[in-house]
Amino acid sequence: MTNVNTLIKGANVLGIELNKDEIDSFILYKELLKEWNQKINITSITDDEEIDIKHFIDSITPLSTDLFAEDVRMIDIGTGGGFPGIPLKIINRDMEVVLLDSLKKRITFLEDIIDKLALEKIFPIHGRAEELGRDKNHREKYDIAISRAVASLNTLSEYCLPFVKVGGFFISMKGPDVDEELKEAEKSIKILGGNLNDVKVVNLPLSDITHSLIIIEKIKGTPTKYPRGGGKPKKKPL
């Protein structure tokens, strides 16, 4: 039972009261994550309590912003094992979620999770952000683009901001030291139609970990030439 307590306690610290269905969903998610992780590499975090803190609780910290109305449409870019998209969906069932990842094996894993957790209005998509960001079905169609992916903010901004509709937000989930990255990304954020709205520092409950939520508002449309293809956002950030 201790593991469930970690999850419940951590969520409580964030002001979130988990109900029985949500707790059961997280328990099943964790079992499947560990099971699949023996077949394909999804996460290096395999300890029960660490999964609760570093994956589940960390993933729901964005709910401490007031951006998650019930009917928002969100895309999670570079979702990996479904973080933060699936934990956010478990708690906010009404929101529509797209999980984007470039690895087909991970998409198969995510389809299994969605099926076993009986989640609706959540769609795993196999693809690359720089291609999907040009697709008219996805470009500037989301209230929120979120990413916990490991890349510099100027690169992530080019991958994520094209998905966000004007008036929506890009949330980049980062470590504690973001000042340098913010400085380097200033130009790219502006070019892509964004404006830094807030940096929320989050102390991860039941740990000594500090994270930052960088919240960028989309104030005007992204110029059509972005995102650039051929890995340019990474190789030659704006």
Results as ranks from 00 to 15, higher is better:
D24Y: 12
D179M: 15
N37G: 09
P62M: 09
I219G: 05
K104F: 13
T46M: 01
V178I: 14
S212Q: 08
I189E: 11
C160W: 03
K200L: 14
E35G: 03
R228H: 08
N203K: 15
K190N: 13
E96P: 02
Y29H: 12
V72Q: 06
D101H: 03
T61H: 01
K174Q: 09
S157R: 02
Y159D: 02
V166A: 08
I125K: 15
I219E: 05
K141S: 05
E181F: 13
L196P: 03
I113A: 09
D24S: 13
N154I: 05
D94F: 07
F83M: 13
R148F: 10
C160P: 05
I125E: 12
S64N: 13
V164Y: 01
I125C: 11
G81T: 04
N41C: 04
S147R: 11
G85A: 03
I45D: 07
D21L: 14
K104W: 08
L14I: 09
L67I: 05
P227F: 01
I53Q: 00
S25I: 01
V201F: 15
L161G: 02
D112G: 05
D24L: 15
K141H: 03
K30P: 00
D198F: 00
L238M: 08
I209A: 07
D21T: 14
P62S: 11
D179A: 15
I146D: 04
L153I: 15
T79D: 08
N197T: 01
M1I: 05
K235W: 04
V97E: 07
I125N: 10
E186F: 13
F163H: 02
M173T: 07
K190H: 15
I45G: 09
K220C: 07
V97C: 09
S64W: 00
D52W: 07
Q38F: 03
L132R: 09
L192G: 12
I77A: 02
R128Y: 00
I91C: 10
F56A: 01
L88W: 06
I45N: 10
A151N: 07
A145K: 06
D115I: 07
G80M: 13
L182G: 09
I90A: 03
T155S: 13
E35V: 01
I114R: 06
K9E: 12
L63N: 03
A69I: 12
M95T: 01
L7F: 11
L182H: 09
K183T: 09
L28R: 13
I125G: 13
L192D: 14
G193R: 07
S44L: 04
K236M: 11
I125H: 15
G175M: 14
L161P: 04
T155P: 08
G133Y: 03
A145W: 06
V13S: 08
N137W: 11
K220M: 08
V98M: 11
D112R: 15
H126W: 15
T46C: 00
I16L: 12
F163E: 03
D112H: 14
V13I: 14
S188E: 12
F109G: 12
K34H: 05
S188I: 14
D179T: 14
D94E: 13
F68S: 06
F163D: 04
D143W: 12
D71Q: 04
L206G: 04
D66R: 10
L67P: 03
R106A: 11
D21A: 12
G231S: 09
P237W: 02
Q38A: 11
V150F: 00
N3Q: 06
